[in-house]
Lab assay of single mutants.
Amino acid sequence: MDSLVVLVLCLSCLLLLSLWRQSSGRGKLPPGPTPLPVIGNILQIGIKDISKSLTNLSKVYGPVFTLYFGLKPIVVLHGYEAVKEALIDLGEEFSGRGIFPLAERANRGFGIVFSNGKKWKEIRRFSLMTLRNFGMGKRSIEDRVQEEARCLVEELRKTKASPCDPTFILGCAPCNVICSIIFHKRFDYKDQQFLNLMEKLNENIKILSSPWIQICNNFSPIIDYFPGTHNKLLKNVAFMKSYILEKVKEHQESMDMNNPQDFIDCFLMKMEKEKHNQPSEFTIESLENTAVDLFGAGTETTSTTLRYALLLLLKHPEVTAKVQEEIERVIGRNRSPCMQDRSHMPYTDAVVHEVQRYIDLLPTSLPHAVTCDIKFRNYLIPKGTTILISLTSVLHDNKEFPNPEMFDPHHFLDEGGNFKKSKYFMPFSAGKRICVGEALAGMELFLFLTSILQNFNLKSLVDPKNLDTTPVVNGFASVPPFYQLCFIPV
Rank of each mutant, 00 (worst) to 15 (best):
I47W: 15
K399S: 15
Q192N: 06
Y243R: 05
I39S: 02
N202T: 11
G27N: 15
D468M: 06
H251V: 04
P174S: 12
Q192D: 06
C372R: 15
G332L: 03
P227G: 09
L54F: 10
K200M: 13
L152I: 06
N398T: 12
T283H: 14
R186G: 02
R157M: 06
D341A: 03
D373K: 03
G79V: 00
K119G: 13
L36R: 05
L234S: 13
A161V: 04
D408P: 00
R21D: 03
I112V: 13
I284V: 13
T386P: 11
V351Y: 04
V473H: 09
Q340R: 13
K59V: 08
P227A: 08
D463F: 02
N403Q: 08
S127M: 07
P211S: 11
I215S: 03
K119M: 14
A173Q: 00
Y68N: 06
G62E: 00
N289V: 08
F114S: 13
N176M: 02
E354C: 03
L361F: 04
P101A: 10
F482Q: 13
F168A: 09
N133M: 12
I39A: 09
L361I: 12
L208W: 08
E81L: 07
E92A: 13
V352Y: 04
L102R: 09
V490N: 12
I141K: 02
E300P: 13
I244R: 01
S220P: 08
K383T: 07
K273W: 06
I181C: 06
G416I: 11
E250R: 08
V462I: 12
G296I: 13
S286A: 14
C266S: 15
I178S: 03
I123N: 06
Y347T: 01
M257T: 06
A350M: 02
Q146L: 09
D414A: 06
L449D: 00
T392K: 10
A439G: 15
Q252H: 10
F487Y: 02
F168V: 11
K423D: 12
Q324A: 08
S422R: 06
L447R: 01
Q324V: 07
E328P: 00
K138N: 13
Q192V: 12
E281F: 13
V479F: 13
N56P: 11
L294D: 01
L306R: 01
D262L: 01
E85S: 10
D143M: 12
P489V: 00
L440G: 00
P211T: 09
N378S: 12
P464Y: 08
Q261I: 09
E92D: 10
F219D: 02
G91D: 11
L313G: 02
I374Q: 06
L170D: 02
L152T: 01
F226P: 02
P37M: 03
G25S: 13
N202K: 07
V352W: 03
P279R: 15
R342T: 03
G171H: 14
N418A: 13
F448T: 02
H184G: 12
L102D: 06
C172L: 11
F407M: 01
R144Q: 07
N289S: 11
V352D: 00
F134C: 07
I123C: 07
L440S: 01
P409H: 00
R105G: 08
L17M: 11
F428S: 04
L467K: 02
I74K: 03
M345K: 02
L71V: 13
N289W: 11
M345S: 01
R150M: 13
P317R: 06
V177L: 06
L128Y: 10
V64R: 01
G437V: 12
V76I: 12
D49K: 06
G442A: 07
K158I: 04
A106M: 10
F295N: 01
M339N: 10
S254N: 12
E272G: 14
K423T: 13
V113R: 15
C216F: 13
Y483R: 01
C175T: 11
I389V: 07
F448D: 02
Y80V: 05
G111R: 05
L311F: 03
G332I: 02
I99L: 12
P464N: 07
F263A: 02
F446P: 00
G109C: 14
N196R: 13
K241W: 03
E274R: 08
V479M: 15
D49S: 10
F100P: 11
V370R: 03
I213Y: 13
R108T: 10
I182T: 04
V145M: 03
L440H: 00
Q214M: 11
S451P: 03
A106R: 09
F239A: 15
F110M: 15
I434P: 02
N378I: 01
L380A: 12
L311M: 06
M345R: 00
L54N: 00
Q193M: 13
K158W: 03
P337S: 05
P363Q: 06
E104F: 07
L57D: 00
T450W: 00
T302D: 00
Y424L: 12
K52A: 11
H344F: 12
S429W: 03
V330R: 08
P404D: 04
F114W: 11
G135S: 12
A106P: 08
P37H: 02
N218T: 11
T392P: 11
K383M: 06
D143F: 07
C172K: 06
N217T: 10
I112L: 11
V351M: 06
H316S: 06
V355T: 06
L54A: 04
V355N: 01
I223S: 09
D191V: 02
G32A: 02
N289R: 06
S51V: 08
V394Y: 14
V319M: 12
T305N: 03
C486P: 01
K275H: 14
V153M: 06
K383E: 07
A238T: 14
K465N: 15
V490G: 05
L11D: 02
G25R: 10
L9I: 07
T470M: 07
F226C: 13
E81A: 11
P174M: 11
F187S: 05
D265W: 02
L208R: 15
K200Q: 05
A297L: 10
P480C: 15
I178A: 06
L440R: 00
K383D: 03
E281K: 09
